[in-house]
Design a protein around this nucleic acid. Structure first.
Lengths: 203, 203
DNA sequence: GTCTATACAACGATAGAC
DNA sequence: GTCTATCGTTGTATAGAC
């Protein structure tokens, strides 16, 4: 009896070799995220468009967040993992950890990836909107919850100014001597400023 | 004798109405600056391409610097004038003056102009190169000469990270609450960080 | 007649050739 | 080290618009 009912349903188990589920998800995600924004896009809708099961998003990308990072942003790392590392340690050294991680991660890609990201964000308003939702709901929310200070939203945007500016100057326009400075020089120079945005006095 | 030799020269005095010398210079400048860079482009070459005298650059734009600002960058203000205002006052308050002026000037344009500037810089490597030369040779050189501290080049690029980042977050991606914050809030929040880059301890 | 956009000459600075 | 070429800029006389 059970066998008969399966006739018109999808086959279970592994798909045939050559069907690239991962690539199909990335392609579908790019379209849906850009069209609906990060919040408006649902994992189920993306999976349906890709013709695969929604569980595949978790399997391949660790969740909606990871899929967004690798499809629209094309980040060369997993933001959830990086975030975990950043939040692990004393708050007074968070600025230092963030800058060191940021520079290390993007340096490893040669910087061209960051430039591409900025280009797509500045040229496509929809991507900028999706990125904003992503940052607010998937990143800032987690970070800010661990910071027991006032004006958390303002602090988050201030941190964003410093990180984005650092990325542009070091990777896109490549102003010297910052573009070629070693990681520790950058950390020493910038981390205290980021730390002030995180936990310092803003008034 | 002298009169005879003038026969094959251009007529002096005002040209016929309808010939827009200013626009001709802007058009020629855009091409030459982008092709040769800020340093490589000569006022004389631009003027020749526009079919006018080189002195017209000074008359209409106050110099090579102003012509670049209004042709390639399309800035809504005169950088030389703004620069003069920034350098006028105690060094300990320079960070505050710079942030206040920056926000005031770009707020007045609605921010779209800044976004357009970033877009052209990030999408055209030649523009980025020309901008770099312009900043180094026409802006930083003057500012840094007045700052009696060590590591001036590094400080200049650090300042650039903060200014560029502020512009992107406030005018391009418009993260709240920073995008809608009033000028004084922004000044109080960011000026101390810029001041550290200018005159503080970097180690 | 007045105003100003214009062309030309010349100056000080700078960089490269020899 | 000197000479030369070229740069950005400034001063000035003039032609045309108003």
């Amino acid at each position: 009896m059970a066998r008969v009912e399966q006739v018109n349903q999808k086959r279970r188990g592994r798909r045939a070799a050559g069907e690239d589920t991962r690539a199909a998800l990335v392609a579908a995600a790019r379209e849906v995220f850009v069209e609906k924004g990060y919040d408006g896009a649902t994992v189920r809708a993306i999976a349906a468009k890709a013709g695969v099961d929604a569980a595949m998003v978790n399997h391949w990308f660790g969740g909606k967040e990871g899929l967004f990072a690798q499809s629209v942003l094309q980040l060369p790392f997993d933001p959830a993992e990086v975030l975990k590392r950043l939040l692990d340690g004393p708050l007074e050294q968070a600025g230092e950890r963030i800058i060191r991680t940021f520079v290390t991660v993007w340096d490893a890609t040669g910087g061209g990836t960051f430039a591409a990201l900025i280009r797509s964000v500045t040229s496509q308003p929809e991507v900028a909107g999706a990125l904003k939702q992503f940052l607010v709901n998937a990143i800032f929310r987690n970070v800010l919850a661990q910071i027991g200070v006032e004006q958390r939203e303002l602090r988050a945007t201030l941190c964003a100014t410093q990180m984005v500016g650092l990325g542009i100057v070091r990777y896109v326009v490549r102003f010297e001597p910052l573009a070629s400075a070693d990681v520790e020089t950058v950390v020493k120079a910038i981390a205290p400023n980021l730390q002030r945005y995180l936990t310092g006095e803003l008034g």
